[in-house]
Simulated scan of single mutants.
Amino acid sequence: MRPFLKSSVLRLAVLLALTIWSCKPQQPIAHILAEFHNPSSSYVMVAAHRAAHNGYPENSLPAIRHAIDLGVDIIELDVKVTTDSVVVINHDRTIDRTTNGTGDPEAYAWKDLQQFRLEMPDGTLTNERIATFEEALLLVKGKAMIDIDIKTSHLKPIVDVITQTDTWDHIFFFDNDYLALQEVRDRQPGAMLMPRAYSYQMADSALMLFKPPVVHIDHSFYTEEVCQLIQNHGARICLNALGTQDSIIRSGSLQKALDNLLKYQANIIQTDEPELLIPALEAIGRRTSGKQ
């Protein structure tokens, strides 16, 4: 099939998938967990980066609700801890970019952080405040998994909130700092981890150290060899669409993006465009269970 015809067929299939998908109920957590623990499945899991934040402040409760409504499998959130040990959702070292406040969120007590409001990327001020991790967990519980991007050295409060909300089976921790991941395991021996690797050798070490259910790799070494290594250890392969591939998705070149993302069997894709990626995967049959 000629490339332009192939692209047109995919776009029509995506439109059909969007129509069907918009009428479907959200995925129950039992289905999501079954897929997560089945790395040989052809089902491609979608992770919403900083929640589904197109039209919403990133890492906010409305962005989390939107991600749930879209039917994403995994919601990626960034966590910090206040001076009074409240775990909050925030990505940057400071709150300058995302709120009308300034400074390090970990230098504030929770009650003082509540005075600030979240901003949209264009600077528009909203009525939303920085959310607590507990609020996020209670909102997501039973509906999706959470990928915790560790942005703090204060891990005990995070562990405590997960225990209090009884959501350990929903959670996995992401970091390239293997000492931080080991501390998580020391505090909660059964905790699920997603180590980040930057080479075949680092992926091999992560698999041996943690026996993780998933390894995060980069496009720079997204090869058949490294993917086979991860699959042979019974783990899923997480790859970012962030940046280049998301730009291709936004441009409408869906087939090109899917070819780039799926060519070596990555089966968790983190994206800023879950609204577009999910129906595109639906259209090619990669959101149904089955062997690859």
Results as ranks from 00 to 15, higher is better:
Ala235His: 02
Val214Thr: 12
Leu281Pro: 05
Ala241Cys: 15
Thr152Ser: 12
Gly252Asn: 08
Lys111Trp: 06
His66Val: 01
Val46Ala: 05
Asp259Ile: 08
Ala30Phe: 00
Pro121Gly: 13
Ser41Cys: 05
Leu179Val: 11
Leu262Gln: 12
Ala266His: 04
Pro157Cys: 07
Leu207Pro: 05
Ile74Phe: 03
His219Met: 13
Ala48Ser: 15
Val88Tyr: 04
Asp149Pro: 03
Leu258Arg: 07
Ile230Cys: 13
Leu277His: 05
Asp272Lys: 10
Glu119Ile: 04
Ile130Met: 13
Gln27Met: 11
Arg286Pro: 03
Lys156Met: 07
Asp272Gly: 11
Val14Asp: 03
Gly71Thr: 05
Gly290Phe: 00
Cys238Thr: 07
Ala136Glu: 04
Trp110Cys: 02
Gln265His: 14
Gly101Ile: 01
Asp175Asn: 14
Asp272Thr: 12
Asp149Glu: 13
Gln270Trp: 07
Leu125Gln: 13
Asp122Arg: 12
Leu33Arg: 10
Glu134His: 08
Thr223Pro: 09
Trp21Tyr: 08
Arg117Val: 13
Thr102Val: 10
Leu118Met: 15
Ala47Pro: 02
Leu33Gly: 01
Glu76Thr: 11
Leu229Glu: 12
His233Asp: 10
Gly71Met: 01
Ile64Asp: 05
Val9Gly: 03
Ser153Cys: 02
Leu138Phe: 00
Val72Ser: 05
Val184Leu: 11
Gly290Met: 02
Val79Cys: 11
Gly142Asp: 06
